[in-house]
Nucleic acid binder design. Structure first.
Lengths: 243, 243
DNA sequence: CCAAAAAGCTGACAATTATCATATTCTGTT
DNA sequence: AACAGAATATGATAATTGTCAGCTTTTTGG
């Protein structure tokens, strides 16, 4: 039954695709300064993939054969610790790349990637990418920039969400981060709805405690919730109290 | 007086240098697979620098004009959070590079670097490095590998030292990590002596609490201390109890 | 729309961690 | 060897966080 549902979504997606593809090209944030002929080459050697919410894109340790560009949707990178707990290291949005490191260094993936929304990818073959690395200095340099940026972001979020700040403050930082990176929907709610469990896996605590603090935030009129969605009432108030 | 001391050490170092340099070439772990002509080019366009323990090499935000290779000694990378607390992101040992990102992307440094021991660097000029990036595909690819590795390490230590594990376990992980990466001296004590404050800044807690747990470890015969140095009595016992 | 499964919530109690002021030891410099 | 300043140690108290079992709501698939 999961398969039927998967197929349905895929078919819906395929119907849309023809319209979509002509309307807007894949974004490839990380390669935005590449010249168009290079972009075209990458585009030619790639195919679209649809993966519904909650599915694994690839798993820690797996040898990748594709470089993925997230055309639309959202994903998480995570690692398991020795005790079997998940640690979410990065949230990915439109235009971001998945699999860079594995293709650069021929190692298995160091993180697992899972979709947080229904997502569309542009999957580029290993061969195309490796040819580009070896033959096109500009591409290689773009990759350098992309990795530099990855490291910067990784360290930034490490400080942002690290302990030594109390979970209240870290959760406030996370809500503001979600607001900045993924924006809000038409009702003003955070566009990326994370499970309490995922928030806990980002901040290094338990889902129950996240829930307790969210309740506190609600009672302080910093946020409101409807069903399981969260709306920030005032980003300024959140920032002020917890930054 | 600090200056006198600095000069003395520098002079001592200069006296040693002639002997040293002919004996062993800088290690450049990150570039180890480069051909020797490339290594020679890098070496020609560089100079030795001595920086005593506890000094800043560069500061968050600073525009760098050198790529540093740590010939001997040890350093830390850290960032300040909005509350002014230090977060140590990485410990660096022999052969590691400092300043890669700043030279790749012309941005200010994203971290501060400070020596944890008297240290010798090989400082390569920005011009030499940028020429190498642009003209030598092999060098560019080596940098890709180095950055990939940085990211891998960053994520690994993020999981290793993250909350969700209790500080007892994180501190045990840290001691084992220090043992692996920096080894022990002739008395069997950890070769890199970190201040309790630095341990706290790695694990995201307070120096006092670190001290309390070290006392606990001592009473459990997992470690012993003499003066302020730490000796792991049995790595196996530490691993067993806290992994 | 229904049933089942998943996710969210509750609150009290236990465990962990932060903090403080103070005391001791260590380090580098004369 | 002695000094000053830094780093380390102490321990009790307060605050934060983890945990549990059971409950309610929401989502999912059909």
């Amino acid at each position: 039954m999961i398969i039927v549902s998967f197929l349905e979504k895929s078919l819906l997606y395929l119907c849309d695709m023809e319209k979509c593809e002509t309307i807007k090209a894949p974004q490839l944030n990380d390669f935005k300064s590449l010249d168009s002929s290079m972009l075209q080459q990458l585009k030619d050697g790639s195919q679209f993939i649809f993966i519904p919410k909650g599915r694994m894109v690839f798993k820690e340790g797996q040898q990748l054969t594709k470089l993925y560009c997230l055309e639309d949707g959202a994903c998480k990178f995570s690692k398991m610790d020795t005790a079997g707990h998940e640690h979410i290291l990065k949230l990915l949005g439109k235009g971001e790349l998945l699999g860079k490191r594995s293709l650069i260094s021929h190692q298995g993936a160091k993180v697992s990637a899972r979709t947080l929304k229904d997502s569309r990818f542009w999957a580029m073959d290993r061969g195309v990418i490796q040819k580009a690395i070896n033959e096109n200095p500009k591409f290689c340099k773009q990759l350098l920039f992309a990795l530099t940026d990855d490291l910067n972001q990784s360290e930034h979020s490490r400080v942002l969400f690290s302990s030594s700040k109390g979970i209240r403050q870290r959760l406030a930082s996370l809500l503001l981060y979600l607001n900045d990176k993924f924006g809000i929907n038409t009702d003003g709610e955070l566009a990326l709805q994370l499970k309490r469990e995922d928030m806990a896996a980002i901040l290094g605590t338990s889902p129950e405690y996240i829930i307790n603090i969210l309740k506190e935030f609600k009672s302080q009129n910093l946020i409101s919730t409807s069903k399981t969605r969260i709306k920030i009432i005032s980003t300024a108030a959140l920032e002020k109290r917890f930054s």
